[in-house]
Amino acid sequence: MPVFFEKKQLVTPGELLAEGDYLAGENTYMEENKIYSSRIGLADTENKKVNVVALRAFYMPKAGDIVIGTVIEVGFNGWTVDIKSPYTALLRASDVLNRPFKPQNDELSQVLNAGDLIVAKVASYDRAHDPQLTVSEPGLGKITRGQILHVTPTKIPRVIGKKGSMISMIKQVTGCQIILGVNGVVLITGKNIEDEELAMMAIQKIEAESHTSGLTDRITQLLKEEKAKIESKMEEKKE
């Protein structure tokens, strides 16, 4: 039962990865006891499971995910929301208003209008139905200020880091609040634009260099240097 790749090797769709007693993991498939890759990515084994970490993919909704979406349409009893996935999501009016919705009393476009950005949680999704969103939890709802950044959804785990090490470091150094949508949309809210831009730069760098090791240390260093530069500039201005 041989394996036909080296650890972290770049593989293309259709490449033969392993034969025999292995399990097909993420972004792979099995045919006649052979495992092939189905996306461009980096191959790896985990016990008997062959995985490919995709370098390019799109977001597939999963119940419980926190996502950031754009309202695209105000409907009769809810909104349709673009969550950067093959399916548009639905947000029900009664969920946002926290009480039964009566069309004669409430004007939906005054609550959320087309173009508004929201942080929401995927309440349910299956093959046959479009994803349903909910905002009835603390921290969810309409976004009023901050910066939005788009990242390939497969790289969100890298931005979070091991046990959240990367993201908490960025939050700490820049003093920004960062919400990571699992769908690859990132919201950054800080005290001033400089801090927000700093956090954006760090996340963009993580996306570009996501498959290298020792990234957290390098990003920490970079952030501290840049932060010092900004602070010295502020001092100059004060003087």
Binding site: P13, G14, N27, R39, R56
Partner: peptide
């Protein structure tokens, strides 16, 4: 199609 991140059996 592969570049779009769509899963393929093979090129």
């Amino acid at each position: 199609i592969a570049d779009a991140g769509i899963p393929l059996r093979d090129l």
